[in-house]
């Protein structure tokens, strides 16, 4: 029994727990309304990596009908609130998952379906599989099982709804706040010159989510390799600037 208890179901809850209330009662009501709506309207992006994907169609269609809980499938990361990782994650796939996650607008939640996302499951010995998903992304809910039944999926989603409603589900902030940690793990797996076309640090700065854990040795390494990704700003006058995001290799050729 002890062994089973060790299987994480939720990642450690945020420090902010119980501290979500604002002093202004009106603002508080407003926040609560917003959180309620967020919990009742979840657009999900199902990143169908492994076997677990097969459990989603029954969960969505007439048997279990997720839409009655306000959960709808969406197509691109921009539109989605929750990222479902449905099974083992190979290293190549993980790159795409991280890009996808970074492109999603916050608040965003990650659900790891299947045991493989918890600890590698039966791919534990595989050289090509990223075993513990939460090392690379902040996972909100794990739904363990090989594979979990649709009931389990829905129950997991309901847990997430509860968390969102009560304001506890703010793991997405961790990614900005502890970016250095996550980036470090990613770099360990993908190599030093790992980068995505998204700019997490700028986003954290823009929305005031920077902490002293955001930047560190790993982000320093990133910034050494990364082409700066500033949005294209207007230029009316003499300002000349180079387009960014250029491939470094091409530059060397010049």
């Amino acid at each position: 029994m002890n062994e089973l208890d060790k299987i994480p179901v939720r990642q450690e809850l945020s420090v902010a727990e119980g501290n979500v209330k604002r002093s202004n009662p009106l603002a508080n009501v407003f926040d609560e309304l917003v959180r309620f709506c967020q919990s009742r309207s979840m657009f999900m992006l199902h990143y169908c990596t492994g076997c677990g994907a097969i459990e989603l169609p029954p969960a969505m269609t007439s048997r279990f009908d997720m839409e009655r809980l306000g959960i709808q499938p969406m197509v691109t990361p921009r539109q989605a609130d929750i990222l479902l990782i449905t099974g083992y994650v190979s290293v190549k796939t993980l790159k795409r998952i991280i890009l996808t996650y970074e492109q999603m607008p916050s608040p965003k939640y990650v659900i790891g379906i299947c045991s493989c996302t918890v600890n590698g499951g039966m791919y534990w010995q595989s050289y090509a599989t990223a075993k513990v998903l939460k090392e690379y992304l902040p996972v909100d809910i794990y739904i363990a099982g090989c594979m979990p039944r649709p009931e389990a999926v829905i129950s997991g989603l309901r847990d997430l709804m509860g968390d969102i409603k009560s304001g506890r589900a703010d793991n997405w902030k961790r990614y900005f706040q502890n970016y250095d940690h996550y980036l470090g793990n990613q770099q360990k797996l993908f190599g030093e010159d790992w980068q995505t076309p998204t700019d997490i640090i700028a986003e954290a700065e823009h929305y005031g989510l920077m902490t002293d854990q955001t930047l560190g040795e790993h982000t320093a390494l990133l910034q050494k390799h990364q082409q700066p990704l500033e949005a294209l700003e207007f230029s009316l006058g003499e300002k000349r600037e180079k387009i960014q995001g250029e491939n470094p290799r091409e530059k060397n050729n010049e």
């Binding site: 921009r78 492109q103 700019d199 929305y207 960014q244 995001g245 250029e246």
Partner: peptide, 21 residues
Amino acid sequence: GRSKRVHQLDNYAGGHFLTAE
């Protein structure tokens, strides 16, 4: 909420990593 302008390469490409080339 406040919007954040992003670079044009930060774009959906089905998980593909876009570069200027």
